[in-house]
Design a protein around this nucleic acid. Structure first.
Lengths: 337, 337
DNA sequence: TTGTATGCGTTATCAT
DNA sequence: ATGATAACGCATACAA
């Protein structure tokens, strides 16, 4: 028991063949009660642990997946990741981090892991497909996309109905009597940006309000960009009485900007966000927002991937999870005008 | 190029032996220019990708590490993780997530990965050592600890000087004229809690202030616990004029509580946090806090681990990175009393 | 500089 | 129910 025991050692000590030991450990075949007892004793005695690399080589699977995200340190991604991890562990997979930092080289590097056998499947929370080596249009490995659709590829997706959710957020504002409702949109290129903007517009139109072009300001999902966008919006001749931001960070930036201009929240300005990151509830005032089921999205994505990994076609190409409008104190009835 | 090519195929196509191909790919021996050319052409033609599982088996190393954290979705851990990941990728390692959820079973499961060869080393941001199988006191695998010391084991650590940093935070408050300075401490069991509390006490004593027992309230590092602690503190007959919280989340909870009691910040109460999580700067008022070099801590931890992995003893057992007092608007001179 | 041959620790096939 | 043995794909000792 000096150097790490291998299956041969266990088998020798138990007086059986390696095949029998393997069958027991992998539950891949019959083993008599007697043999089982002897092997179990030998396992104890040797302190044996399976070499999972050898197993992987033989089985041609790594039982690991990789998750590519732009930035794990952002709450949204970290929360989804937790859901993935939780579910992965339950079905016997390990998860590798692929922090892409929006760098294509990095993405390609991580995609390589799929080709080299370090990972069996991929979850993309990235918005775009990495380049897979030079291997032309060979069959792609199992991939599931979370949240942000990737263009130009038809991959199973787990996300939310961004259009509907955004419309819901704006309807909340409308119900509070607001009419001049602005929107702080995300990065222009993004598909989520387009969807949330579409929901915003649709809700306004449904209320017979024509969405003015200048009511939309673009940011990049960061707090600072939200502040900048709000600055532009509040400088309008007829400033909005409410803002729907495409995510919580920008909503918070907007609120900071409003405060710095001496406005009171929510009386002077109502703000709704999107995500419900942990911090949203702790801001002053607590942010009304659309809660995305991060954890469940991650878990669902892993479930879909697991099906793919088992060789089953995914149940549905698009799995949209329900969101929830969470009303806190950043929104209120329109009073003065 | 139908099924995945292996080295044998490349070698055959290039008219050389697998050994030569291997030498080229691993840069492990001489290869003539001519052979190199032919092999490179064959690599192209076959679309070859290395099977890293086979390589791992042969080399007896996985080139992966695992990071055990209580909760990746907490900013602190996510940020350190980014540093780890960044450095790991640079030195050719993959990183496996081990979200322990403070569950010993989980920790043990992840520790198993080290024994089964899925990972070569471990970074612990967890505060305690997992149980490694039944293998008694066999040699531990390479382990580096980040931030929170683990008791009962002498492992290389990368962190900050919590005592000194806390004293610095409190000194800042003292310099602003505050005398009745309270402390919201973390979870009682924790070593960080003890260290930061010690720094708090030391700074007070150095200023010839005797730290009153009732000035310390305990939380659990969460926003809510910070609010509860502040509630108790502010209900004191002689309430503090300033609070030093052991982390930003609790500081924010405390500020929320103060506001809800109608206090103005920072004029009625100064608050200093610890960490400088991304959100600290976006709160109202922006939080004065001790900035921990998260990213650098992660990167440094990976560096130390890498040394261990290469068989070198770690340079120093305790690597303490410098923190920075970041003064924002949650602290101000004591005016009224 | 190159090739041959063996082993890394499992699993799976095929007999028995 | 069990055992012998051939892969899995790569790296290296050794010989050439």
């Amino acid at each position: 028991m000096d150097k790490r025991a291998k299956m041969t050692d266990v088998a020798a000590l138990a007086g059986v063949s390696v095949a029998t030991v393997s069958r027991l450990l992998a539950a891949s075949g019959p083993v008599s009660a007697k043999a089982r007892r002897r092997i179990e004793k030998a396992l104890q005695a040797t302190g044996y642990t399976l070499n999972s690399v050898a197993r992987s080589l033989r089985r041609r699977e790594s039982r690991a997946i990789i998750v590519i995200v732009p930035d794990i340190s952002q709450a949204f991604f970290a929360l989804v990741l937790r859901g993935i991890e939780e579910r992965a562990i339950a079905v016997g997979y390990s998860v590798l981090i692929g922090n892409s930092a929006d760098d294509r080289k990095r993405e390609a590097l991580y995609a390589e892991h799929l080709m080299t056998g370090r990972a069996d499947g991929l979850i993309l929370i990235n918005g775009r497909l990495p380049r897979f080596g030079v291997s032309g249009k060979a069959a792609l490995p199992p991939i599931v996309v979370v949240s942000e659709r990737v263009r130009g590829a038809s991959l199973p997706l787990v996300g939310v109905d961004n259009v509907g959710a955004s419309a819901m957020a704006v309807r909340h504002l409308l119900e509070q009597g607001h009419r001049r409702i602005a929107h702080i949109a995300g990065s222009p290129g993004n598909t989520m940006t387009a969807e949330r903007r579409a929901g915003y517009r649709r809700a306004l139109r449904d209320a017979n309000i024509v969405p003015m072009r200048e009511w939309i300001a673009y940011g990049d999902f960061s707090v600072e960009s939200g502040a900048r966008a709000a600055h532009a919006l509040l400088a309008l001749p007829e400033p909005p009485t409410a803002i729907f931001a495409a995510n919580d960070d920008m909503a918070i930036g907007a609120m900071n900007m409003a405060k710095s201009r001496g406005m009171r929240l929510p009386s002077d300005l109502s703000v709704v966000g999107f995500d419900d990151v942990p911090f949203a509830a702790s801001y002053d005032p607590p942010l009304s927002t659309i809660r995305q089921p991060f954890f469940e999205m991650g878990a669902a994505a892993m479930d879909v991937l697991h099906k793919l990994l088992k060789g089953q076609a995914p149940g549905s190409e698009r799995l949209l999870l329900p969101v929830q409008l969470t009303v806190r104190q950043s929104t209120s009835r329109l009073t003065s005008e």
